[in-house]
Nucleic acid binder design. Structure first.
Length: 224
DNA sequence: GACCAGGCACATC
DNA sequence: GATGTGCATGGT
């Protein structure tokens, strides 16, 4: 894309990519969780880890009946570590989960509705103040647990923006998020689907430098 | 055995 | 402010 592409043009391309991804991969039905609380737990456990490992940890918690705030909040750090072990980084993630649970307990009596009732920029700032919750985790919670119109940026998102020439070099999280949120109308349903589709894109699509095109891993057909 | 996967905080310069 | 490093499991 030419650096001089107008903002309107960039928006058009961004929407065209969405359409192509949706027609290729279909609705993603994110977040794969039963409750908003489970989304929060998953959002912390998935940090720098593949989702399959997280599902093992979630299953452990579910089997023990711990996927509800009052029960999870009560268990020891050691038991937490044992149960979430398959998600990797279990020492740091146990601490981060505890930090999040303490935050919920101290400010909202363990009820996500209290957090959800606040304007999302405020809720976002509060989440970011929790040690172990960074931009992506906070935004995943806001979008996928609380249904707020916040775009989630991840490593795949950055790759897509670079690949398609929307940006020329890596930019910080906030600017990449702003890019999507200024070009795609504010809608949690669309933001939900777009981010999930970008993750599919990252997993299922590779770049052929010789052809300068992308192809689907499943059949090597060219794509985008 | 190397590399990767839906980050984040902290140390160091 | 930029860059480097530790954290850990399970699949390919």
């Amino acid at each position: 894309m030419s650096p001089k592409a107008t903002d309107a043009r960039k928006g058009d391309i961004l929407r065209a990519i969405y359409d192509k991804l949706f027609s290729t991969f279909g609705p993603q039905h994110w977040w794969p969780a039963k409750t908003p609380f489970e989304v929060c737990v998953g959002a912390i456990l998935v940090q720098n880890t593949n989702w399959q490992n997280v599902t093992r940890a979630i299953e452990n918690l579910h089997r023990e009946g711990l996927l509800e705030f009052p029960f999870l909040q009560r268990i020891s750090r050691e038991r937490m570590k044992t149960l979430i072990r398959p998600a990797g980084y279990f020492n740091v993630k146990a601490t981060r989960l505890k930090n999040f649970l303490d935050f919920l307990a101290q400010n909202y009596e363990g009820d996500l509705k209290g957090l959800s009732g606040k304007p999302w920029p405020l809720a976002r700032a509060e989440l970011l103040s929790v040690n172990g919750i960074g931009h992506e985790t906070a935004d995943s919670i806001l979008l996928y647990a609380l249904n707020k119109p916040v775009f989630v940026v991840d490593a795949y998102t950055k790759r897509l923006l670079l690949r398609h020439g929307f940006i020329e070099e890596a930019q910080d999280y906030t600017s990449m998020q702003k890019f999507f949120m200024t070009h795609i109308h504010s809608d949690p349903v669309v933001y939900n689907e777009y981010h999930a589709l970008i993750v599919q894109w990252g997993k299922r699509v590779r770049y052929d430098a010789r052809e300068g095109k992308e192809y689907l891993l499943r059949d090597r057909k060219y794509f985008l």
